[in-house]
Design a binder for these strands. Structure first.
Length: 287
DNA sequence: AAGAGGCCCTGATAGC
DNA sequence: TGCTATCAGGGCCTCT
């Protein structure tokens, strides 16, 4: 689920609520995530304060007061819930992502604060948690992560140089976190729709103008999605309020066989599989 | 070295 | 009702 906009929305909500709060305990119900939850996770967090939460790519980064860090990646199905300890769970449960009601299954990690519980839920267990003893180790972990699409680094000269002579198609490049970090399967299709580029087009064949459009619309689409609280699909029918609404603005994603929404284009949205991932585009106006 | 494909896991949904 | 197959928003690893 979570691509850059969703993780950013979670980060913003969390930062407000748990900044400067002290962790009183950690309960690991299941260590079996994408990578094993470290054995010292409880010891590492207990009695520390969360100074800050930031986002890097699709990772949430928790800055602890003794200059150590831990990160959470939500994988495909991870979500975070804050539950007030004082009032009844059913009334006060706050979901920053996913269903408003707290799931009963797959609540793998509980981080206990003074007045609330932080719950990491992840049915598919593709998410993971890692800890870092110092900033150097954290930076080392992120060394292969490419520039943020919303940053100045993601600019024309960088992209032109990167895609030069590359056979790989642009859809796969947008999913390649080493090239640009934070874009996933939904937003890659949406960005290419706005850019009017066929997802199968090879990196080396992109024109300067097309590269400009990709950079421009990456920023537009992602910023708009953040503003809309991210996208909630699959479970969006039974979520309210705090879940995102950008799915209402999808132009191609999950719109297979529908008419292209571009003015004066009478094409249809088609779905193809690229590297085992569904890809949606208009075969008339995306060239 | 670059690029394609398999795989980790559970749940929802479609089709029979 | 119940079976099986297919598909999900990610990314690491292996193979060519």
């Amino acid at each position: 689920m979570p691509e850059l906009p969703e993780v950013e929305v979670v980060k913003q909500s969390l930062d407000k609520k748990i900044k400067f709060q002290k962790i009183s305990d950690v309960l690991v119900k299941s260590r079996k995530l994408r990578f094993k939850v470290p054995k010292n996770f409880n010891f590492f967090l207990k009695n520390k304060k969360v100074n800050k939460i930031s986002r890097k790519s699709k990772y949430l980064v928790f800055h602890l007061n003794n200059k150590t860090f831990f990160i959470i990646h939500l994988g495909m199905s991870g979500s975070i819930h804050l539950v007030s300890k004082k009032k009844k769970i059913s009334n006060t449960n706050t979901s920053f992502y996913g269903p408003l009601n707290l799931p009963t299954k797959h609540n793998h990690i509980l981080i206990i604060f003074k007045n609330f519980k932080f719950i990491y839920n992840d049915p598919r267990r593709f998410g993971f948690i890692k800890v870092f003893k110092n900033e150097r180790k954290l930076v080392e972990f992120f060394k292969n992560i490419g520039p943020e699409p919303l940053s100045q680094e993601f600019k024309e000269s960088y992209v032109i140089n990167y895609l030069k002579n590359k056979e790989k198609n642009i859809k796969n490049f947008l999913l390649d976190q080493k090239f640009v970090s934070g874009i996933g399967n939904i937003y890659s299709s949406e960005i290419l729709y706005y850019s009017q580029i066929n997802p199968l087009k090879k990196g080396k064949n992109l024109t300067k103008f097309e590269i400009k459009k990709i950079i421009y619309f990456s920023k537009i689409v992602l910023n708009r999605a953040i503003k809309k609280g991210g996208s909630s699909i699959r479970d969006f029918k039974n979520t309210k309020g705090l879940s995102g609404s950008y799915q209402k603005e999808f132009k191609v994603y999950q719109r297979e066989n529908s008419n292209c929404l571009k003015k004066y284009c009478d094409g249809k949205v088609i779905k193809i599989i690229i590297s085992n991932r569904s890809t949606f585009f208009c075969n008339r106006c995306q060239k």
